[in-house]
Nucleic acid binder design. Sequence first.
DNA 1: GTCGCTGCAAAGTCTTTGCAGAGAG
DNA 2: CTCTCTGCAAAGACTTTGCAGCGAC
Lengths: 160, 160
Amino acid sequence: MSANTDFTERTVEYNKLLSDFKQLLRDNGLKFTIQREVILEMLYSSDEHLTPESLHHLIQEKHPDLNTGIATVYRTLSLLEDSDMVTSLSFGAQGKKYELGAKDHHDHIICTQCGAISEFVDDEIETRQKKIAEELGFLIQEHSMQIYGICLPCQRKMKK
Amino acid sequence: MSANTDFTERTVEYNKLLSDFKQLLRDNGLKFTIQREVILEMLYSSDEHLTPESLHHLIQEKHPDLNTGIATVYRTLSLLEDSDMVTSLSFGAQGKKYELGAKDHHDHIICTQCGAISEFVDDEIETRQKKIAEELGFLIQEHSMQIYGICLPCQRKMKK
DNA sequence: GTCGCTGCAAAGTCTTTGCAGAGAG
DNA sequence: CTCTCTGCAAAGACTTTGCAGCGAC
């Protein structure tokens, strides 16, 4: 897959997301504003899992002219979360982080040293989870799983 | 297993916990106070996963004479968490909850309607997790997994 | 034009910290 | 006795909310 193909796929994917967002707003009598677009764009283009604060910083940096307030970031994230377009993650003391929910389902592995988050999926675990919920009489809705450990770069740093 | 046996086992288990706690305090030049004992006792005797606030309420209720401050609850929970005697869980918007870590490892299944938490263990999942961490180059330390769904009592309520 | 949206600042939560007196070792 | 703990209240961090002017539709 060439870099060019990647770019095209990302564009298509983002446009889909954007039009879903616009539809969502329209359906609820809400307005499509530059601030809301920028927040969605930053969430999409950043590979990180963002806190409201880091997202706000990023926006201030990339679009200083907008002078976006942190309150708007919080309000938009709530809106997106309520509509299931983003998911919030709360791991330990590191505060709440957000990621776009449109991406495929996945779980997280977190470095306890540097806070880096990687993603993974495992079908076998997914299957077992369904079975467990069933055995306990639960109607399963979703799940989340985190593995905590030390990532390769941090392991190397520690050896020095 | 009789009720009597249960009681005895619980007593033995609690005494072990208590002496571990005392040892921990001694090792660090800290003092064993009534407040600290009561906090450990409440954590042990409650089957719930407690928030600092609910734990504080519980203590006020059972030991009103102590007039324990919420600050002490926070300070003791931090102490216990740092020493790995309790584990904190943060599920969604429901805030941080604490449970005794001395219990065997287990994961959680949470009812999204009533907030009830059940526990489970699954060896197959545990095994897969180790393998995944290995594949990603992580040195695994621990993990946590949550399944969200609707518990049986809530399912029944909803049908009515 | 209307009505929702935004930035600002004020108000809420939840958690931590400084302090002076109380209490464990 | 010493030095840590505790309760209290004040201070912090993070998030939400009220408001007046702005901007999408």
